[in-house]
Amino acid sequence: MRRKRAPRGSGEQLREEILDATTELLLETGHAKEVSIRSVAQRVGVTPPSIYLHFADKDALLDAVCARYFEKLDEEMQQAAVGQPSTVDVLREQGLAYVRFAMKTPELYRIATMGEGRPGSDVEVALNSSAFLHMRGAVEGLIREGVFPAGDPTAAAMEMWSVAHGVAALVVSKPYLPWGDVEAFADRVLAAACLGHIVVDMVDLDAPAHEAITWLKGRLSVDGTTDEQQRG
């Protein structure tokens, strides 16, 4: 049905209706290639030229949909930090919030993060402000507290984001693999990454692996001796 002519000054409302319709079609079809400007226009009840008054092309429309999608991620990552007993817990919960978010709407997550990115696009800006900035803030706190070794917080935040995205992307693209409890799986991986940052400066990374393992076991022993020494 043709949409009634909107009153003057209601362009922002139409823009939101276009974004809502595009989101619905993406969720229904599961693929960006199945969504066209014409199908969006039909869903809203306007002509295709009306869409182009708000978005230059389909890529711009999809960018806007994904950017709005990641604004919700920003809220969830902020909430994840509330009430946590330590900054390490904040970082782990932020990573879990990211994975949960992807699992809620896997189609949108796939389109937003696993397609061809464009530097400077709305979705890149939204992702940087939601996921990256929150994780970097937690990493900066851990460095100040002396929990993480001194260094570039940007690099460490990128590594933690890579871990969260890696889990999210695999779960979304290959849900049939034997993940077990996905949230528990994600938490173990995130915990391992956090602990790795904590101990990385304590170990000589150029030493043979068995020497580093023996040293770490010794540090973890209650009385400071290695397992081999305890058995002897």
Rank of each mutant, 00 (worst) to 15 (best):
146 G>F: 00
146 G>W: 00
147 V>Q: 00
147 V>T: 06
149 P>E: 00
149 P>Y: 00
150 A>H: 12
151 G>M: 03
151 G>K: 00
151 G>A: 03
152 D>M: 04
152 D>V: 06
153 P>Y: 08
153 P>D: 12
155 A>D: 12
155 A>C: 11
156 A>L: 05
156 A>F: 04
157 A>L: 13
157 A>F: 08
157 A>W: 08
158 M>E: 14
161 W>F: 15
161 W>S: 12
162 S>A: 15
162 S>V: 10
163 V>H: 02
164 A>D: 00
165 H>I: 07
165 H>P: 04
165 H>A: 15
166 G>V: 09
166 G>W: 09
166 G>Q: 13
166 G>T: 11
166 G>S: 11
169 A>N: 10
170 L>S: 14
172 V>H: 07
173 S>P: 02
174 K>I: 10
177 L>Y: 01
177 L>A: 06
177 L>Q: 07
178 P>T: 08
178 P>M: 08
179 W>P: 03
179 W>D: 03
179 W>R: 09
180 G>Q: 06
181 D>M: 10
182 V>Q: 09
183 E>R: 10
185 F>I: 01
186 A>E: 00
186 A>T: 04
188 R>P: 02
189 V>E: 08
189 V>T: 14
189 V>A: 13
189 V>P: 01
189 V>G: 06
190 L>Q: 01
191 A>M: 10
191 A>K: 09
192 A>D: 15
192 A>C: 14
195 L>E: 05
196 G>L: 08
197 H>A: 03
197 H>T: 01
198 I>N: 04
198 I>W: 00
199 V>F: 14
200 V>Y: 06
200 V>W: 04
201 D>H: 12
201 D>F: 01
202 M>A: 14
202 M>G: 14
203 V>Y: 04
204 D>F: 11
204 D>T: 07
205 L>D: 07
205 L>H: 04
205 L>Y: 01
205 L>A: 10
205 L>E: 05
205 L>W: 06
206 D>W: 03
206 D>G: 00
207 A>G: 07
207 A>M: 05
209 A>Y: 10
209 A>M: 11
210 H>P: 08
210 H>W: 12
211 E>I: 09
212 A>M: 14
213 I>A: 15
